[in-house]
């Protein structure tokens, strides 16, 4: 936007009024008309007509990544997650049943008006993505090895079963048992602590018993390992 300035008239208020305002108002008006409805690129979380892939791209991807592989470990990787698990979690968030801090802070609002169809669509979208293959987040190989031992063999002395029994030998998950392979170590560690120390995830109550006797070190080790097997 360039405008020639006539030195003799540039300053007169009446002229200024005529110069800038109509251009801006016209542009704002055009923008308003263009922006009334845009379901193919909407970020409206209360419109049942917005297709799930659009919401995944326009909203979910902000934290979980467009490929389902989140950059920040504050947010879980969703790529290739079990669809049943995604559906269950989104419905838990929507019903305010899952109340761990990240879930409460971020997901209650996001999910509050999602329809069942949108939730199914989001589950399909993320579960269809290629699993994450990221470099190990915990560089210490011996920590990961210790985690592998727990993951594959459990801790018999404490009656802790191998994680792979339910989550699969490659951490790929199975139905309501989530994929763990490739998940951020920090996220896995924090969620295991949520299971162990709180009742904030009632849908995962089975985990409360399983992780009851895990030490903080065990939890770190398992988390380090499952991230590395993505």
């Amino acid at each position: 936007m360039k405008r020639a300035i006539h030195p003799a008239s540039a300053g007169r208020p009446s002229e200024n009024k005529m110069k800038l305002a109509p251009v801006l108002i016209a542009l704002a008006g055009a923008a308003l008309v263009a922006g009334c409805a845009n379901p193919s690129r909407s970020r409206d979380l209360a419109n049942p007509n917005v297709p799930a892939p659009v919401l995944a791209e326009q909203v979910c991807s902000n934290c979980h990544g467009i490929t389902g592989v989140s950059v920040s470990p504050n947010f879980p990787v969703l790529a290739a997650q079990q669809p049943q698990y995604i559906v269950a979690q989104l419905k838990e968030f929507r019903a305010k049943g899952r109340s761990d801090p990240p879930g409460f802070e971020y997901m209650w609002g996001i999910s509050r008006k999602l329809t069942d169809a949108q939730i199914e669509g989001l589950a399909k979208y993320f579960s269809s993505q290629a699993p994450a293959h990221q470099p190990p987040e915990v560089k210490n190989a011996s920590v990961r090895e210790a985690g592998k031992a727990i993951f594959t063999g459990g801790i018999p002395a404490k009656n802790i079963p191998p994680c792979m029994t339910c989550h699969g030998d490659k951490g790929q998950g199975n139905a309501n048992f989530p994929r763990l392979g490739g998940q951020h170590a920090d996220y896995v560690e924090k969620q295991l602590l949520v299971f162990q120390r709180t009742n904030e995830r009632p849908e995962g109550a089975v985990m409360k018993t399983i992780v009851h006797d895990l030490t903080p070190e065990h939890i770190k080790e398992v988390a380090a390992y499952v991230q590395s097997i993505g």
């Binding site: 936007m1 360039k2 405008r3 300035i5 540039a10 300053g11 208020p13 200024n16 009024k17 005529m18 110069k19 800038l20 305002a21 801006l24 108002i25």
Partner: peptide, 27 residues
């Protein structure tokens, strides 16, 4: 580009006394 907030855009300086407003020359 910025200019003085005149006419319909005077809402941008609503409540600001005339002597306290910023008046720009052109864009």
């Amino acid at each position: 580009a910025y200019g003085s907030s005149n006419g319909a855009l005077s809402i941008m300086h609503a409540g600001v006394a005339p002597e306290d407003q910023t008046k720009l020359r052109g864009l």
